[in-house]
Amino acid sequence: MKTEDLIRGLAADMRPGRSLEGGLALGVLAGVGAAALLFALILAPRPGLLPLLAEWRIVLKFAVTLPLAAASLMLALRLSRPAADAGRWALLLLLPVAVLVAGVVAELAATPPATWRSDLIGRYAPYCVSLIPLLAAPVLGALLLALRRGAATRPAVAGAAAGLAAGGLAAAIYALHCVDDSPLFMLAWYSLAVVIVTAAGAVLGRRILAW
Rank of each mutant, 00 (worst) to 15 (best):
L169Q: 04
S118W: 02
V101D: 04
A171M: 02
A152W: 01
P133V: 09
A136P: 12
V129Y: 08
L120W: 11
V105G: 13
V157N: 04
G167E: 06
V99N: 07
L140M: 08
T111M: 10
A170H: 07
R149D: 01
D181S: 12
A110G: 14
A160C: 11
R148P: 00
A161Y: 00
Y124M: 13
T111Y: 07
G103L: 02
A162L: 05
A146K: 03
R148Q: 14
Y174W: 12
A151Q: 13
A171C: 07
S182P: 07
A136K: 10
S130M: 14
A152S: 15
P126R: 08
P126N: 05
R154N: 14
A114P: 01
A114H: 04
G122I: 03
L108K: 06
C178M: 05
C128K: 11
V139F: 01
P183C: 00
I121Q: 12
P112T: 05
D180V: 04
A146P: 03
A158E: 04
G159A: 11
V129W: 01
A137M: 14
G150R: 06
D119R: 06
L147M: 07
P133G: 11
C178A: 14
A114E: 15
L164M: 14
L176D: 02
L108R: 15
A172G: 09
G103N: 02
G122D: 01
R123P: 08
T115E: 13
L131I: 14
G167H: 04
V179M: 15
A136L: 08
A175F: 00
P183N: 01
A151P: 10
V105D: 13
I121P: 07
C178I: 07
A172Q: 02
Y127L: 15
L140G: 07
A110R: 07
H177R: 11
A171K: 06
